[in-house]
């Protein structure tokens, strides 16, 4: 085996190691990688990916350059980024994602064990470092993609979960579903207040039937919303308080003060309508 990149005849570059055994490496690599995916990708698909990584890797071989952040590896990096993203969105696990590059080490090692020499092993050691780095790179990209997916979902959930519905002239309801944290409360509060102003409604019903648990923090958020609505000139009624929640609220010593609370949405609507009705009576 001749070596293009190193003047020392006992040295062998990992690039030439890969090139010399191209067919064998590709075959074993594909096999190992596909075996770890348990049939979720066909060998043909895996073979295509492996082939692409192989070509980019061999192109990136510029002798002693083993820093995968360098320009020589730009093609390979973008290829791996694309692969990791696809895998993350398809729901592959981190191991299943990284095995695509790690399998290369097994493949080369197997070949070396069959007919390896010392320069070959040296080249393998360098290749091994690069493959490790590439694997880490893939995992990082994978994690970033997953985080992006989670952030998107959280945002979608925020928008989904804040409908303000009009029940009657001047009465709107906000059925809350799911856990209330600060970020959600903010969105919910803004949506409710804006609707109150836009529709000129003086009564708002906050229904917490779908809120799984009420602790001091959730109660605090509810109180803030009610106070803000009061500042606008609207009154809030909190409804949908389940027996367990009522007990928790009392046990925690949460004071709802002069805010009206009702067990069911129906009671709350009745109260709000009566209040609106009284306005009519008063103006007579």
């Amino acid at each position: 085996m001749d070596d293009l990149h190193s003047p020392d005849p006992t040295e062998q570059s990992w690039g030439s190691l890969l090139r010399t055994n191209r067919e064998e490496v590709l075959e074993k690599w594909t096999q190992t990688a596909a075996a770890n995916l348990g049939g979720r990708m066909t060998p043909a698909e895996m073979g295509r990916d492996v082939d692409e990584i192989y070509s980019a890797l061999v192109r990136a071989d510029t002798g002693d350059q083993i820093d995968i952040r360098s320009a020589a590896y730009a093609d390979l990096r973008s290829l791996l980024t694309e692969l990791s993203r696809t895998r993350a969105r398809q729901g592959f696990s981190p191991t299943e994602t990284a095995v695509g590059v790690y399998a290369l080490k097994d493949a080369v090692l197997e070949i070396l064990e069959a007919h390896g020499d010392l320069p070959g092993y040296r080249a393998f050691a360098r290749l091994s470092r690069i493959v490790d780095d590439l694997g880490m790179f893939m995992l990082e990209t994978y994690a970033t993609t997953r985080e992006a997916v989670i952030a998107e979902q959280a945002e979608a959930l925020l928008e989904l979960s804040t409908p303000v519905v009009k029940l009657w002239d001047g009465i709107v309801a906000l059925p809350l579903v799911g856990t209330l944290d600060s970020a959600r409360t903010q969105v919910v509060m803004e949506a409710l207040l804006q609707t109150l102003v836009d529709t000129g409604s003086e009564h708002a019903i906050i229904d917490i039937t779908g809120v799984p648990a009420v602790d001091t923090q959730v109660a605090q958020h509810l109180l803030k919303t009610v106070q803000a609505a009061r500042l606008l000139g609207a009154e809030c009624i909190i409804s949908g308080i389940r027996p367990q929640i009522a007990q928790t609220v009392v046990a925690l010593g949460i004071e709802f003060g002069d805010i009206h609370t009702k067990a069911s949405l129906a009671d709350a609507i009745l109260l709000a309508m009566r209040r609106s009705g009284l306005d009519v009576v008063k103006s007579r």
């Binding site: 102003v197 803030k224 606008l232």
Partner: peptide, 15 residues
């Protein structure tokens, strides 16, 4: 009577 408070103002005051 204080009238016409903006939602953003109400939230700020409560905070």
């Amino acid at each position: 009577v204080v009238v016409g408070m903006q939602p953003a103002v109400a939230i700020t005051l409560v905070e």
